[in-house]
Amino acid sequence: MQIFPCPFCGERNETEFHFAGELGKIRPDTTADVEADAWARYLYTQRNEKGHVREVWMHIPCAELFVLERDSVTMDVLGSHPLRKPPK
């Protein structure tokens, strides 16, 4: 069982977390025309990298959505920070 760091709660057991996607997907502006290819890339294309990855995870109990950096080979956690803008 892995230990992930929630940026707010701190370290918790992996059973409290949910993978939400790779970091860096930008939703196309759908009020303008969006090419079918661009939309398909947004929906379905994953980088699926080996090694250092940046992913979005949710800490389910506190609902924090955050960026988790980890190594997809060694499973080492390299860091985490909130996805939202920094607090005022």
Partner: peptide, 20 residues
């Protein structure tokens, strides 16, 4: 649905102006 709403609240919207 709660998680779905939370995910979109914090990713793509201003979470300081929406509470779920």
């Amino acid at each position: 649905v709660r998680m779905h709403l939370e995910a979109w609240r914090q990713d793509g919207h201003d979470p300081d102006n929406i509470y779920i």
